[in-house]
Nucleic acid binder design. Structure first.
Lengths: 153, 153
DNA sequence: TTGTTTGCAAACCTTTTGCACGTTA
DNA sequence: TAACGTGCAAAAGGTTTGCAAACAA
């Protein structure tokens, strides 16, 4: 089980994202570039608001929320970003790494912390199940709920 | 793998729900009763709007949305209802059957159909994983994404 | 230049809340 | 009758859209 994303994987994702955007005939505007750039540095998911706040804390112009949402929309359509729904009414977003590098989330009910989770046995069981279903499975999300190590202590 | 809920399980859930509500010192108002009654007849999740629409189609007074939400809130707090977040910005709700009878969801990206899913191997793998984590796991949700049998055809 | 991207503000939708009235135990 | 539940309308989020100005190719 390995959850951290390496530096080279992040750089690769950023390159891949820029290439896909350009291949799709889209342009590299400031807001979109800033969002890609920020996401490339993340290990786990962020909400649109968190993304904007992070960009506001950095030097340079802060994009409007609408542009953040539009960028996330575009990136999601290009399968560069994965939308994560952990409950509540806030969507979160994280880079989708092409090599199937793929994690899930555990959410602490006390402090709200989101912990990335990876497990090969669960993935295997899930794929085996998918083969048995009439449903044509293209992807899956798992959310664990409970208390993080700190809150359970 | 067995997904359907039997008639007796439904009746049992309704009884259990009414008992829990009363045991919690709460009263049986019209809206709350109507929501419990409707949920008892469901195999899978419904949104608040769907619940209200279904109640509007039945004889008798139609509860206000606020009351539907309040009823769902109360029932969720009492662990009688499970809140399901399948994406989008609409929460769905389904009866939580006490005996650990427990299913997940596959969502069709074309028609939006929600199909209930159950698999013992996946559950086992998930529990094994939970034992290995520092996180204190209390529950989990799985969402499969893809195309339903009809749309894939 | 030409079509794309951005920002702002307004619109939208789901969910929550305030408050007066009706109901339950 | 004293709480609790309900309905309506208003408020509160998060997200989307319309439109004119700024910008990339």
């Amino acid at each position: 089980m390995r959850v951290m994303t390496t530096t080279s994987e992040r750089a690769e994702w950023a390159r891949h994202a820029e290439a896909s955007i350009s291949a799709a005939g889209l342009r590299a505007g400031g807001a979109r570039k800033a969002v890609v750039d920020l996401l490339a540095r993340q290990d786990c998911c962020l909400s649109a608001q968190e993304i904007r706040d992070a960009l506001a804390a950095e030097p340079g112009a802060t994009p409007g929320m609408a542009s953040v949402y539009r960028a996330l929309d575009t990136l999601t359509d290009l399968h560069l970003v994965h939308r994560v729904d952990l409950g509540g009414q806030v969507a979160k977003f994280e880079p989708a790494h092409p090599g199937g590098d793929h994690h899930h989330h555990a959410v602490c009910r006390e402090c709200g912390a989101v912990v990335p989770i990876e497990d090969d046995d669960v993935e295997a069981a899930l794929h085996a199940m998918a083969d048995r279903l009439a449903f044509e499975v293209e992807g899956h999300d798992i959310t664990l709920r409970g208390r993080c190590a700190r809150c359970a202590r």
